[in-house]
Write a protein that binds this DNA or RNA. Structure first.
Ligand code: FES
Ligand code: FES
Lengths: 149, 149
DNA sequence: AAATACCCTACTGTTTTTGTCAAGTATTAT
DNA sequence: ATAATACTTGACAAAAACAGTAGGGTATTT
């Protein structure tokens, strides 16, 4: 359960490659494609979203490529996944868009909400820099001391 | 991102209704259907899985229905979702079945693994009893102090 | 035997996912 | 200028997953 889409997975791996070039060298889609074994066409879609979100910027023409828009320790995994897969919402009732008429009488609503918040909090603490350094740890994420329904 | 399937959602809500009858009164599919607004046919599929997993038992004939196989404080949300959606595996590489050739050189593998473990740990701490009582809290879930890649 | 209630398998329409393809725009090097 | 490089964009399609229906069968009670 709770599968991450390939777009999200590839997106993080692509960002990792781009981060490696920062701040000197723009990284081309082709290079990312070869290193991470993802097709150029698919990466185009992914990187486009991340560029529009302001996480990376692009440089056209020979010698061009992609480069981080801010330093690696200021880009969290959460911010990448948010752009590619939308916000964490374990049920459609929790979607920013979709409301639910049962929400007040629903016995599970707050449970899914709490879990979602926990996931989000975790992903926010991990940055590209952490990923590159190879150390990431879970910091006693505490959503709420107690939730009364 | 990270959407839970309706099977998982309905399953937890159905278990909640069954738990309310425990240990005296078996709860029928029809009752669950009406209270939780899920079709009888769909619930049959879901409850069948949960019965085969040993979480509930069934009583046939008039006066029958479903009843918990052990007390509500011994049934975690994790155990319910595990049966209906399989184990938490954010990527196919983490699936018990599917291996991945890149796993050793993969920069994100341990990240998804850590997140998955965190989710699982959270869901294991919440029982049906917690759900019924309306209090569930996140207990400083700590997967590992530090993961070195 | 009639009524109740669970059991089981198959099937189908819909949505989401996972990509591919083709044509276009901007920049640099020669 | 012109060719080569590299990003940009939108349309499209196969495949998988999801959500749910349908229909017949079995066991138990009254
Ligand atoms: S069914 Fe919508 S909030 Fe639970
Ligand atoms: S691609 Fe399989 S482990 Fe990362």
């Amino acid at each position: 359960m709770l599968r991450l889409s390939t777009k999200g997975q590839y997106g993080v791996r692509a960002m990792y490659e781009i981060a490696r070039g920062y701040p000197e060298t723009p990284v081309t889609i082709k290079e990312i494609s070869e290193r991470q074994d993802v097709s150029v066409a698919y990466l185009e879609q992914i990187l486009n979203k991340l560029r529009k979100a302001g996480l990376i910027k692009s440089i056209k023409g020979p010698g061009g490529g992609y480069i981080l828009n801010r330093s690696a320790d200021k880009i969290s995994i959460a911010s990448i996944l948010n752009e590619l897969e939308g916000p964490v919402a374990l049920t459609s009732c929790l979607d920013p868009e979709g409301g639910c008429v049962r929400v007040d009488s629903c016995v599970t609503h707050l449970l899914w909400k709490a879990l979602g918040e926990q996931v989000e909090a975790f992903l926010k603490t991990i940055t590209l820099k952490n990923l590159m350094a190879g150390d990431f740890y879970s910091q006693e994420v505490k959503v709420k001391d107690k939730v009364k329904v």
